[in-house]
């Protein structure tokens, strides 16, 4: 991949440029996705990517960072995620250590104080030193805001987090600033490019959706998936690639317990290439289908119905 020139990360690459930069990384970026990224960049709006697991939402954010030459800051959401883990924490250990080491110095400062009130007044002027940036542990959100370059902030699987956390994100996504009680409001040095991903396992709040541009990424069509496989598993014959893409497309509509994502179909293509398969015959499938399907029942059902599901060789 062509390394972005210094300062290029701050510019907004066009949709076409993004497609070609992603292609260098072996990622087939669809036209709507490229335009969504370009517009989110130009408008400095967060982009909410929704879609089933394994269609490349996280990968898009990762490659967007590479394509724009920006650092990637990732926040993986989960149930119970709170401000302390997402935004900042005070380094209590460091504060205690410093207060112990500086005990004598504190004694010196307070030594000449004639009264308790005077000592408190002197201490008041000094105590804030323990609540400065030196003792702050920035977590992903704050890291993205304080980044000296324009970063790509990936808030991954936002639907796993609690509603409280969603509400907390609103200020950040609206104004790109956060409030730290001891320090005041911290504003972004450079507004980060923000990507939120969701698997749509729960409904996100309207307030959050309103603040974002929205893009739904579905499973790719056969042609598109064949192109992805060509980029990621070039060792596979073209006819087999197309057959594989059609087969995976059928499986996705067959109501399996876990529909295979693009990542799994790439794994499967690589597995087929590794065993030197030339067609989707039963022996090759039995050997490699574990790369595609992740439940025993799914494997059994697919192997039992292979005749009906397998597309003819092209």
């Amino acid at each position: 991949m062509k390394a972005p020139r210094k300062g290029e990360g701050k510019g907004a690459p066009s949709a076409q440029e993004l497609v070609s930069r992603f292609a260098v990384e072996g990622f087939v970026l669809s036209r709507p996705a490229a335009r969504a990224l370009a517009l989110a960049d130009a408008l400095e709006k967060p982009l909410l990517l929704e879609g089933p697991p394994g269609v490349g939402k996280t990968e898009i954010a990762r490659l967007w960072a590479r394509a724009t030459g920006s650092p990637l800051v990732r926040l993986q959401c989960y149930e119970g995620l709170d401000e302390a883990r997402a935004l900042y924490e005070w380094s209590y250990g460091k504060q205690i250590l410093y207060s112990q080491l500086l005990r004598e110095k504190v004694g010196e400062v307070l030594g000449g104080a004639p009264s308790l009130e005077e000592a408190v007044a002197r201490l008041k002027g000094q105590a804030d030193v323990f609540f400065s940036m030196d003792f702050l542990l920035p977590r992903p959100l704050l890291r993205a805001l304080l980044s000296p370059e324009r970063a790509v902030l990936l808030v991954d699987e936002i639907d796993r987090s609690d509603e409280e956390f969603e509400a907390f994100l609103l200020e950040m996504l609206q104004d790109f600033q956060v409030s730290v009680p001891e320090l005041g409001t911290v504003k972004a040095v450079h507004r980060p490019r923000v990507v939120l991903t969701s698997n749509d396992t729960r409904e996100l709040a309207d307030a959050l959706r309103r603040r974002c541009l929205y893009l739904y990424i579905d499973y790719p069509g056969v042609e598109e998936e064949a192109a992805i496989l060509a980029a990621r598993a070039p060792g596979l014959p073209e006819a087999l690639r197309r057959q594989l893409a059609a087969f995976v497309g059928r499986l996705r509509r067959a109501g399996l317990r876990k529909a295979p994502g693009v990542a799994e179909s790439i794994d499967w293509a690589l597995a087929l290439a590794a065993v030197g398969a030339e067609d989707l015959g039963r022996p090759a499938l039995e050997e490699t289908l574990g790369a595609l399907l992740k439940h025993r029942e799914d494997l059994k059902q697919v192997l039992d119905n292979l005749g009906a599901l397998r597309p003819p060789a092209v």
Binding site: Y219, G221, R242, R250, R253, N305, A308, P312, V314
Partner: peptide, 27 residues
């Protein structure tokens, strides 16, 4: 989004059973 195009492209170069039939058989 992509579903119709997927089906259309499959139809153009494949023979029966159709994906719907295959999916129905599996279901």
């Amino acid at each position: 989004s992509s579903q119709p195009s997927q089906e259309a492209s499959e139809e153009s170069n494949e023979h029966p059973p159709t994906p719907e039939e295959a999916a129905a058989a599996l279901a």
